[in-house]
Simulated scan of single mutants.
Amino acid sequence: MTKHILVACGNGIATSTVVATKIKEYLKENGIDADTTQTRLTEVSSKVANYDLLVTTGQFSGDTHGTPYVLGLSLLTGIGAEKTLADIKAALVNQEV
C-alpha cells in the first residue's frame, strides 16, 4: 500500500524537493512504497488531511488534522538525519498495525 507524505517548506520548491527525494530513497531502500507531494508551509492545514504523514523543514504549529508530523530540518543539515528518517519510517509503519 502506497503511503502519501506531504513535505512542506517556506516556498514549496527547493528545500522540500531535497527532503522529499531523501525520504523517498530511504523508504524505497526499506521496502516502503511512498509518494511525496511538496507544498508551502502556509498551505499545510488545507491539504494535510489526505496524507499519511507531514514532514516540514520548519516549525509548524498549525492544524495537522490528526496526521502524524515529523520535523525534517535535519534532512537538510545532515545533523540527526538518520534519526529523522527512522522516525519517518516508524510513523508510517505504525499506521499499518
Results as ranks from 00 to 15, higher is better:
Gly66His: 03
Leu71Pro: 00
Ser74Gln: 11
Gly66Ile: 06
Leu71Asp: 02
Leu53Pro: 03
Val55Ile: 05
His65Glu: 13
Pro68Lys: 03
Thr56Arg: 07
Val55Met: 12
Phe60Val: 05
Leu75Ile: 04
Leu54Asp: 02
Gly78Leu: 03
Leu54Val: 10
Ala81Thr: 01
Pro68Thr: 03
Gly62Val: 00
Ser74Val: 05
Leu76Ala: 05
Gly72Cys: 08
Thr56Tyr: 13
Phe60Cys: 11
Val70Tyr: 01
Gly58Glu: 15
Gly58Phe: 06
Ser61Ala: 12
Phe60Asn: 11
Val70Leu: 01
Pro68Tyr: 11
Ser61Lys: 12
Leu54Ile: 08
Gly66Leu: 08
Phe60Pro: 07
Gly78Met: 08
Asp52Cys: 05
Phe60Met: 11
Gly58Ser: 14
Gly80His: 06
Pro68Val: 01
Gln59Phe: 13
Leu75Arg: 10
Ser61Leu: 15
Ser74Ala: 15
Gly66Arg: 09
His65Met: 11
Thr67Val: 15
Thr57Lys: 08
Gly78His: 07
Gly58Thr: 14
Leu53Gly: 01
Leu71Tyr: 15
Leu54Lys: 05
Val55Thr: 09
Gln59Val: 03
Val55Arg: 06
Leu53Arg: 03
Leu76Cys: 08
Phe60Asp: 11
Leu54Asn: 05
Ser61Arg: 14
Ala81Glu: 15
His65Ala: 15
Gly72Phe: 04
Pro68Ser: 07
Ser74Leu: 02
Glu82Tyr: 03
Val70Arg: 06
Leu73Val: 01
Val70Ser: 01
Thr67Arg: 09
Leu71Ile: 01
Thr67Leu: 11
Phe60Glu: 11
Ser61Asn: 14
Gly62Met: 08
Gly80Met: 10
Ala81Phe: 06
Leu54Met: 05
Gln59Thr: 09
Leu71Gly: 00
Gly72Glu: 06
Gly66Ser: 04
Leu75Asn: 02
Gly80Thr: 02
Gly62Cys: 07
Pro68Leu: 12
Gly72Arg: 07
Asp63Glu: 12
Leu71Cys: 09
Phe60Gln: 08
Asp52Asn: 10
Gly78Lys: 11
Asp52Phe: 03
Ala81Ser: 15
Gly80Glu: 11
Asp63Ser: 03
Thr67Ser: 05
Val70Gly: 00
Glu82Gly: 01
Leu73Ile: 08
His65Phe: 07
Thr57Ser: 12
Leu53Asn: 04
Asp63His: 12
Val55Phe: 12
Tyr69Leu: 14
Asp63Thr: 01
Gly58Cys: 10
Pro68Cys: 08
Thr77Asn: 09
Val70Gln: 04
Gly62Ala: 01
Glu82Leu: 07
Thr67Gln: 05
Thr67Lys: 13
Pro68Ile: 01
Thr57Gly: 13
Leu75Thr: 02
Thr57Arg: 10
Ile79Tyr: 15
Leu54Gln: 07
Gly72Gln: 09
Thr57Val: 10
Gly80Gln: 08
Phe60Leu: 11
Ser61Trp: 07
Leu54Ser: 04
Phe60Lys: 10
Thr64Gln: 13
Val70Ile: 13
Gly62Tyr: 11
Thr64Glu: 06
Gly72His: 12
Thr56Phe: 09
Thr56Ala: 07
Tyr69Lys: 13
Gly62Thr: 00
Pro68Ala: 09
Leu75Trp: 14
Leu76Lys: 03
Asp63Gly: 00
Gly62Trp: 10
Gly66Asp: 03
Asp63Ala: 02
Ile79Lys: 12
Leu53Phe: 10
Leu75Gly: 09
Gln59Pro: 04
Thr64Phe: 06
Thr77Cys: 10
Ile79Phe: 15
Ser74Tyr: 06
Thr56Trp: 14
Leu54Thr: 02
Leu73His: 10
